[in-house]
Amino acid sequence: MDWITRPWPWWIAGPLLGLMVPLLLWLGNRPLGISGNLRHLCAALPGSKPDFLRYEWRTQIWNLLFAAGLVLGGWIGGHWLADPDPFVVAATTRADLAAIGVTRFDAMVPVEIFSWDMLGTARGLVILIGGGFLVGFGARYAGGCTSGHGVAGLADLQIGSLVAVVGFFIGGLIATFLLLPRIW
């Protein structure tokens, strides 16, 4: 039974993630997408809002329920299915990251970014506040994120999604090779 706690290979997890696209159509004709929830959450706030945030967000409750499921899945994955072995990072990546100053490689989520203490540092502010802002802005501008474009859009052979995914990688490469070395 230790397959449950070990990390799952891409050729198991990938196809299952992809099958979520037809599954959501089967469950209720819904398009897979997660970043739309950021819009729904903004739209659910009271007070005056820009036009883009004025719509009947309650019709999108299913998407917020899906996000609630993601939270639940994170809890289950972290508590019942957690991998007891040390996290493994590719040796070449470790060497490159060590060169820019990363020292801890022992957890799936690096404490050198994801801890409350980091919020008091320039690095933590840039990554958590700046990164979050860019993800929220960019996802809505592009009309989707890694799930809506990267999985559902590519699966549906949408040209716009392919362009968006290319954009994701251009941005990610700039962040990795130009920005991260300067803020670490």
Partner: peptide, 19 residues
């Protein structure tokens, strides 16, 4: 798609986190 994608990618690359 391109401009929004790049902006998203900058945040994704920095944080390793998407929605």
């Amino acid at each position: 798609y391109l401009a929004g994608g790049i902006i998203f990618g900058l945040g994704w690359g920095l944080s390793g986190v998407c929605p």
